[in-house]
Write a protein that binds this DNA or RNA. Structure first.
Lengths: 223, 223
DNA sequence: CGCTCGATTGAGCCGCGTCAAAGTGCGTGG
DNA sequence: CCACGCACTTTGACGCGGCTCAATCGAGCG
């Protein structure tokens, strides 16, 4: 938002700068790294040394339930910041959904600055608030919506994060969507097909969605 | 934890002090208020003026999905702090589960202090991290566990927050548990009954649970 | 051209929600 | 002290949405 570039959930650009801003005139230059599709950025249990910003590509954060099924907790697109959720140790892992450039800033550096500069500390708190609200919204979707509504909510959420608000390039597979929405790939696929049949969306290819009737989608989400 | 009393998730005592600690030697005395069972502490959309700490009783935070069904996002017991999740405006509402004494501290006061004192800012960030991890754990439970596993997870979570780790006094109704776990009251009730049949717990009364076999409960949770 | 991986489609089943009816505990008033 | 009413809980019967299993389809690539 504004000039800060601290948004954790609003990266419309295909490719963005690799610095993390903590306030006006306080911008941290990160180290840029490249990750291949499905490569791990960090793993559950590792020491949390860095905070990350997506420059290009996309990232997912993962946790596994005790019986081994995976739950995707969030997707991060260019401009989004991730890796803040933890104390000293990561409680989840992060992987590249597609090839991604990611900018790393040392957590100790951010800690130091946040301790000295009040407005930087507030920037960090604001980022975490956004993450927290995301997680709560996610819990609401998983708890209270049926399959079609979940997929609709997912598409709307994605549409709002992309420049062209009605044409979406999905960086993730059906399996990723399923594990994010706590459904199976079959159910996700059927939901897409149904929406296409209803002229709510069209699917030129399986990774490319065109929203033809946003209202219908919003109606579906509410269900 | 430690001497700070900033824990958001660990209030074993039936009744605790009403101050919020932001660091060693930095303790904010709150204004104590009383809320009746089911009374609203704050509502979605209201300006977020305060941060709250449960002194006695219990509190739930709520959000409604677009079709009107409610989802309980968290329960707060004595010692827990809530109301941090928002920016300027509450994105959820909070109600007393049972009669509760709650201590209020002005958000502006905390903001001011956090801006000036680095360690206070870190205390706030730590509290938010804990909230965030709670929310993510909750999403994992809702997404990946069946009915019995959810109830088992709920009981274990509660058992860990109570002094007597095997005797739990539930401050909330079956309906509250159901809305927290995204189940129906009937399903929650059946899960309790089943556990009692399996000698995993006993139910001297519907609000009083005795954990007889914690291992079995942990096994159930994993499912 | 044929292989492989992901996506789609279909058939059948099961867990949990829905609806309905008792059962239980507690506060209130007679 | 007991009778009644109300709110909450438990239990049962049944239906449906989404999962499972299996086959087919389609696109990218060697």
């Amino acid at each position: 938002m504004r000039d800060l570039g601290i948004e954790t959930s609003g990266g419309p650009a295909h490719r963005v700068s690799d610095s993390i801003a903590l306030g006006p005139g306080l911008v941290l230059q990160g180290t840029r790294m490249h990750f291949r599709r499905n490569e791990e950025v960090f793993g559950e249990g590792e020491a949390a040394e860095y905070v990350y910003r997506v420059v290009s590509g996309a990232v997912r954060t993962i946790r596994f339930s005790s019986d081994g099924r995976r739950q995707i907790l969030n997707f991060y697109l260019p401009g989004d910041i991730f890796g803040l959720e933890c104390g000293g140790q990561h409680t989840l892992s992060a992987e590249a959904v597609a090839d991604a450039e990611i900018s790393l800033v040392r957590r100790s550096l951010i800690d130091t600055i946040a301790t000295q500069d009040g407005s930087a500390a507030r920037a960090v708190i604001t980022m975490m608030q956004r993450q927290l609200q995301n997680a709560q919204e996610h819990a609401l979707v998983l708890g209270r919506k049926g399959a079609g509504e979940r997929v609709a909510a997912f598409l709307l959420q994605l549409a709002d994060r992309v420049t062209s608000q009605c044409e979406i390039d999905l960086p993730m597979s059906r399996a990723d969507i399923a594990d994010y929405l706590a459904l199976t790939i079959e159910t996700v696929s059927r939901a897409f097909t149904q929406m296409e049949r209803d002229k709510t969306i069209s699917l030129p290819s399986s990774r490319h969605v065109v929203v033809r009737d946003r209202c219908a989608l919003e109606l579906l989400e509410a269900a």
